[in-house]
């Protein structure tokens, strides 16, 4: 079961963060908000912060999957879990990149 977990964890976390950011975006568009942080409108700042968090979590996961303490004893599972780890990271970066440049709520 641990090996199954190692293989599934990164994409699962991608799915969770993808839904969370989409949900956050929906939530903010449902409720008017105003304010500026670091020269960015509040909504944008939140979204970008969530984006950065999601990427950071994926990076931590990837490092963990490569570390000898956490990685699986089976070379095959190691290979597949590294691959899915990369999938998680790349998918997070790519699928959420719209938070940086697309208009929100419109």
């Amino acid at each position: 079961m641990k090996d199954v977990f190692r293989i599934l964890i990164a994409p699962l976390v991608w799915f969770a963060s993808f839904s969370a950011v989409y949900g956050l975006h929906g939530l903010m568009c449902g409720h008017e908000m105003s304010g500026v942080v670091f020269g960015l409108p509040l909504e944008r700042a939140y979204l970008v912060a969530a984006y950065v968090c999601a990427i950071a979590v994926q990076m931590v996961l990837l490092v963990a999957l490569y570390s000898s303490r956490i990685a699986s004893p089976s070379p095959f599972v190691r290979f597949v879990s590294h691959a899915t780890g990369w999938v998680g990271l790349i998918a997070t970066i790519w699928s959420l990149v719209p938070v940086v440049f697309t208009t929100y709520c419109g």
């Binding site: 994409p11 699962l12 691959a83 899915t84 998918a91 719209p98 697309t102 929100y104």
Partner: peptide
């Protein structure tokens, strides 16, 4: 195959591109 399985759960809104969802949602 695993990657395909997971990614496929993050695509459903592409069937709803014409429903007036905000741009950023579409872009995701």
């Amino acid at each position: 195959a695993l990657a395909l399985a997971f990614l496929s759960f993050g695509l459903w809104v592409h069937h709803m591109f014409t429903t007036g969802i905000p741009h950023m949602g579409l872009a995701f």
